[in-house]
Amino acid sequence: MKQPLISIRNLCVDYVTGDQFFRAVKDVSLDIAESEILGLAGESGCGKSTLAFSLLNLHQPPAYITQGQILFQNDDILKWPLNQLNRFRWSQVGMVFQSAMNSLNPVARIDKQFLDVLARHTTMSKDQAISRAEEMMALVDIPLSRLYDYPHQCSGGMRQRIVIAICLALSPRLIIMDEPTTALDVVVQREILQQIHELKQKLDFSVLFITHDLALMLQFCDRIGIMKDGEIVELKDRATLYEKPEHSYTRQLLEAIPGRHLFGRTWHEPLPEVSP
């Protein structure tokens, strides 16, 4: 395996309620390698988003990381002071949230939202920041004129690509994507994920991809971890997981994938040529 970028060691996260606590992540250890796409699959409430939040130490009470280490270049980020953490967030590890297209500020133009991120994390001048924003928009194939639009003027898929572009503007080493395409329809979903793959080849970053859609994950990720009740019950590369699942829960998830009758069909290719 390649050199790990981030290592999670024996992590436990608890939600404290009154005098009780609920352990959402139970003693999880996990490595994310350089330029790897790692998937975490599981039902809602299994702890996959809680785990992702820990990577940026973003938890707020009542959630507490009660045990474990998160090593970034052999340094435990959980011990870092806030100002060091703030520099680390976004510039080293970026995050695309669930329903990310609604995470844009509705009353600010898109260029402003790029400038915000770049002003906070870099020493770029305004002109430099704008040319960086233009570069990123070109990278995700959105016309430059869109930079001066408001989020509501863009379609859902476009907004999602803009969020990814903002996330990539600081060239992070890892991007966490928490259900990035659940609100989009399948064609747009495939367009975006295919684009992320393309960008990954160009820019070389790692991705932690979180979803409950195992079919999508099997297509998109290099390695996949299956989470259940706060634990990773199985962790394998995509082909092995699909062909030789060991845990009964993994098999259950695989059987529940809709559209099995459509897999590997020949009409997939080629799509018909049409003249516009």
Partner: peptide, 27 residues
């Protein structure tokens, strides 16, 4: 056919899709 080709299919990785259907978005 476009809709059907976008249904998540575990037997086709995005790596392979990129090589086979590089032009997908424009199509």
């Amino acid at each position: 056919r476009l809709l059907l080709s976008s249904v998540p299919d575990p037997t086709r990785s995005y790596q392979a899709l990129l090589e086979q259907e590089e032009d997908f978005r424009h199509q």
